[in-house]
Design a protein around this nucleic acid. Sequence first.
DNA 1: CTAAATAGCGTAGCAGGTACGCAGTACACG
DNA 2: CGTGTACTGCGTACCTGCTACGCTATTTAG
Lengths: 244, 244
Amino acid sequence: MSELPADVVLMWGLRDASRRGPKPSLTTEDITRAAIELADAEGLAAVSMARVAERLGNSTMALYRHVKSKDELLTLMSDAALEEPSPLPDGVDWRTGLTFWADNVLTTLRQHRWYAEIPISGPPAGPGNLAWFDAALGALADTGLSEEGKVGVVMGLMTYVHGQIRLSVDLAAGFTDNPAAFNQYGAVLKQVVDRRRLPAVARVLDAGVFDPVVTFDESDDQDFDFGLQLYLDGVAGFIERTCS
Amino acid sequence: MSELPADVVLMWGLRDASRRGPKPSLTTEDITRAAIELADAEGLAAVSMARVAERLGNSTMALYRHVKSKDELLTLMSDAALEEPSPLPDGVDWRTGLTFWADNVLTTLRQHRWYAEIPISGPPAGPGNLAWFDAALGALADTGLSEEGKVGVVMGLMTYVHGQIRLSVDLAAGFTDNPAAFNQYGAVLKQVVDRRRLPAVARVLDAGVFDPVVTFDESDDQDFDFGLQLYLDGVAGFIERTCS
DNA sequence: CTAAATAGCGTAGCAGGTACGCAGTACACG
DNA sequence: CGTGTACTGCGTACCTGCTACGCTATTTAG
């Protein structure tokens, strides 16, 4: 029927093999991979067209034959960072499945800490995103939820996971930048907080919740799992309510 | 006891009024406000030191007497965007309180669509962040949760809300950039998706969930409330479980 | 009155994204 | 087998943006 929009075709490397002209010495995948390696090693800020080209032994401008702009490269990176998801174990209930899935996302994205810095530019369209989307939907297959309900649940879950990743990564970066700010966090707050204006925060401080923040462990999944299980509790209620 | 770290003092404008030298013609607040107006009007990308200075009738470098770097300015903006939260209605239960709070955050941040683009550089320390933190904790005051439990619940909620804001804002931006990509979303997926590799996505497409995406309404709180209520359901279970 | 501290700001350096156009290359077609 | 055509790589150049540095003017402590 209708043709695919040219943007989409070009972007995800579906272009038909045209004949004439020199063989490309580079592919979009090469560029994406090089950019990802760079970002993994030195952070997203180190990813400039020049650095990526250097890493590939090409000139800066050569990249623009394969990638429309730096923004497009970022989008490609963010999709490619999501490698193929591990297949769900067979015959598990939806809750085990989604927990497995979420932990999987977490460990995958922990290896690419720049992931959350890249702005989302549209609905999930790349192959990586779609594969993960499918996996999560698959976990809900036997619940009896409507397709729309499944989409809602999965969207909410993605939002939570992405938010959590972003938070933990940003905090970790802030911590290595300036550990003092974290160690003294409780102490600073105690001096700054006006107990009359912020009574609830004052109570938290009195309880000593922020005193032992000295330890900051990036791989601490405590908080992640806590929020995740709360959300899944909600999903359980929703399923029960909906599928009488 | 111990002094506050100099960074903190300078950053949040707590410096003691020293005497010598010319009167400043600018304050940190002026700069922050000008930057926010600019970002509201033209997006975060338009916020350059030069543009902000121009708006204030000063030279670019004058700003650096009041702000250590552009990053610091961004942090200040992100805190100042959170104006004083509306006080919670009295005598409402925690769930009504948190829903009220979340809707409040949502409407406040909708007015500053650049908010989610600013990287979080540490635990919440600015006056705006703390005020909102306090309000959310206050809503949980009567639940009997431990202080630590309250902090966990509020953290998870903030994560969710921030994630949702980011998603909705980025999507809205993508939509105005390129509405076609959204209108054709369902159609494109139907052509791209390999039904064998992505069976669950295929089922969603068959059910027509993505067909009517033509309408994209940024102020559509449907999805936001859906996920929020799921999370709050989880919190309700947690409270019941914990506080026997 | 003098010196110290501080504000504003001009200059300049450096980095990064990318428009443009040239030159070389490989295949299609005659 | 030649010739044109479409395509690749890339050098150059421009523009924007952040910010280090140092000069000058201004205020006030002593």
